[in-house]
Simulated assay, not measured.
Amino acid sequence: MNTQFKSVKSSKVVISELMLPSHTNFSGKIHGGYILSLLDQIAFACASKFSGHYCVTASVDTVDFLAPIEVGELVTMRASVNYVGKTSMIVGIRVEAENIQTGKIKHCNSSYFTMVAKDKSGNNALVPGLILSTDDDIRRFWNCIKMIAIKKDKQNHEETFDYKSEDSLSKLSKYNVQLERI
């Protein structure tokens, strides 16, 4: 049993970056792939800071793009460890973009990354326990528990659902698909 515990607050990392024309997609907005790259970097920094180990991305659990980001806006990402297992952590990240001329701030993205701590040999490493100090810490932890349960349900469904049964094939008529089996 791990006897070391660290606070959520000790895991917090904040980065800000001015969005440049070189970061845009074909519609002139900031490219989602560029934002994903920054999200992965801050998730790594947050998890590594908390665990004291090199960390790898095990999964990108949620990425909700809520509003476009414009060239010239200052993007700020705030990350914290919201959940810990034995060797893994779920890092929550909030992305905001600020129009630096008007000061208007908009929430642009919420993301959750599962990160795994590694030792010097590349084996999974134990991570500290998590001290929950605020109502937000507790809420975020329980939301991660729910997210994990949903992920397990999805995996179980994939393993047990007979998608080729006559019953499941007949239900496809409710959807915008046409079945043409080869």
Rank of each mutant, 00 (worst) to 15 (best):
M1I: 06
M1L: 12
N2V: 11
Q4L: 11
Q4M: 15
F5L: 12
S7M: 03
S11P: 13
K12W: 11
V14C: 07
E17D: 14
L20A: 09
L20V: 06
P21Y: 11
P21E: 01
S22W: 04
H23P: 00
H23F: 15
T24I: 13
N25L: 05
F26R: 15
F26I: 10
G33K: 03
Y34W: 14
L36R: 09
L38D: 03
L39A: 06
D40I: 04
A43V: 06
A43Q: 04
A45D: 04
A47S: 07
A47I: 02
S48C: 11
S48Y: 03
K49L: 09
G52E: 08
C55T: 12
A58S: 10
V60K: 01
D61R: 04
T62H: 01
D64N: 14
F65L: 04
F65K: 03
E70K: 09
E70Y: 12
V71I: 13
L74E: 03
R78P: 03
V81E: 02
Y83K: 13
K86W: 01
K86T: 14
T87H: 12
S88C: 03
I90E: 06
I93T: 02
V95F: 09
N99D: 15
Q101S: 07
T102W: 00
I105A: 01
I105K: 10
K106C: 08
K106W: 01
K106R: 14
S110I: 08
S110V: 10
Y112H: 05
F113P: 00
T114L: 05
K118W: 02
K120S: 07
K120C: 12
K120D: 08
G122A: 07
V127D: 00
I131G: 14
L132K: 06
L132M: 12
S133R: 11
S133N: 14
S133F: 06
D135H: 09
D136L: 07
D136M: 12
I138Y: 04
W142S: 11
W142N: 13
N143L: 06
I145R: 04
K146E: 14
M147N: 02
I150K: 15
K151N: 04
K151H: 08
K152W: 08
D153I: 10
Q155K: 15
E159D: 11
E159H: 03
T160F: 09
F161S: 15
Y163C: 12
Y163P: 00
Y163K: 02
K164I: 08
K164S: 04
S165P: 10
D167I: 12
S168C: 07
L169P: 11
K174I: 03
Y175W: 14
N176Q: 05
L179V: 13
E180D: 10
R181W: 12
R181I: 15
I182L: 06
